[in-house]
Write a protein that binds this DNA or RNA. Structure first.
Lengths: 147, 147, 147, 147
DNA sequence: GTGGTCTAGACCACG
DNA sequence: GTGGTCTAGACCACC
């Protein structure tokens, strides 16, 4: 698998990038002050249009995860790891509640649901390649941001 | 709350309607032979474009859940409750797997997830208003299909 | 003057559009539920690329001022006029404080500043064409949003 | 706060530096003949790219505020304090007009604006730290220009 | 018809 | 070199 971006997925490419970055920050693979790959570089690595990467970066800046220094590059904001992690958690818990409620409404029993969850836990499929990194070597090896 | 359709949701309106109907059949709120509200009536009740309702009905007919009698209306097919229930189940299990995988990737532990599921099971919130039904009074009180 | 958008301005076109819309809502020229001109229509009227208009609309949606109904169009959100007005006011007051502080630091006297303000008030230049509307006839004459 | 340069600001860093210098001259904190910190020194103090400082100095030289003596450094020109003060004033008045026009367009009354201005005048906040100086100790304590 | 997404490629300001 | 903006035009899903 060359890329962890799936062009044919129903979820938009730029959203996939956003999720990757958010997850990388939440999991500590991207640290505050780290520089992200340049728009052009990442777009080449992912074989997508620079605009698509730029859009993802811009969204993440609006969300407060990244900041941009003109002519310098894009960097991870400080003091957002915790919030980022919590947001991830909350989002997941919310969806978990939703789907369990639905399961219950559909007449599934607690045992049954428990089993499914257990089975799911034993797989090691992670949506964002939790392994050290597939293609998205998100942090630039170079330098930290100058302040 | 007048409607259980969320026009601000990211999931398409017609899909929401399809899910509602499927779930209503699976849970027995809609029984084989029951007539559904007319496209026009439902579209007015949901404040939604008639085309949207029509598309949902058409899809459901293709799926085999409904059938249309010209000039009479749209009815629930017979012998599909089991399949419908299974489809519902599959859909839910799929989503369950998804969200659990994501939770795991985000570093949540099995115990933690189990707790959340348990807590969720103890509530009696159902996504589509398991209560007699909010707006989607899907079965017409009138008549059964003459077939 | 055919258009109130200034292509040669240093402020980005999409920002100009955003300001126009925000101001139109704050001033009541656009009311909750009103439909905005379609991306294509506005882009033709302003003689800019559809993407530029779309970007403005999208930003305003993120800001919570607008919402989108797929296939239907873009509408003004409810319950945001007050907040919108207040945000406008706060932004202006903040900038006012800034510039007055700077003026003071530069050694200007209260009288002098007062005079300038008074003179400025007597002009009727408004950045967003407060007149009934220059080109940006922002509300569509047609219909309100269905819900 | 170590620096009065805001790298997250939307106004370019080099412009911020130019404004700082211009204001320092206008307010007498930098006097004709004073030597400015070297490009290298200032860039380190501000944690900014040397090119950025160099560009600011170059611009200011073009504007006639500074002059460079090869091998000696950059100095404040003579006979420009008045012009500098006037330029500052013009810039401020321009911005004042802008913001007042916007306030008016937003429906604020003359009285209201007057009050805000008055209140702002009573504070002693100055944008560039009118206090002896935060980081931008713009004049080098060493020597005056030999000319 | 509507908006959403993406591509290809241009020009600009900043560092 | 960096990102920001804009254009032109494509295809898609939804209504």
């Amino acid at each position: 698998m060359l890329s962890s971006i799936d062009i044919h997925s129903s979820v938009a490419v730029y959203v996939q990038i956003e999720n990757h970055v958010q997850f990388a920050i939440a999991s500590g693979r991207l640290k505050p002050g780290d520089q992200l790959p340049s728009v052009r570089e990442l777009s080449e690595r992912l074989e997508v249009n620079p605009n698509t990467v730029a859009k993802a970066y811009r969204d993440l800046e609006v969300m407060g995860l990244l900041y941009t220094r003109r002519g310098m590059g894009v960097f991870v904001n400080k003091g957002i790891e915790v919030k980022c992690r919590e947001d991830c958690r909350k989002r997941i818990i919310g969806r978990l509640h939703e789907v369990v409620a639905e399961a219950k409404a559909a007449g599934m029993e607690a045992d049954e649901i428990g089993e499914i969850v257990a089975k799911s836990m034993s797989f090691d499929a992670s949506p964002y390649g939790a392994t050290p990194s597939s293609l998205l070597q998100l942090a630039r090896p170079r330098k930290k941001a100058a302040k």
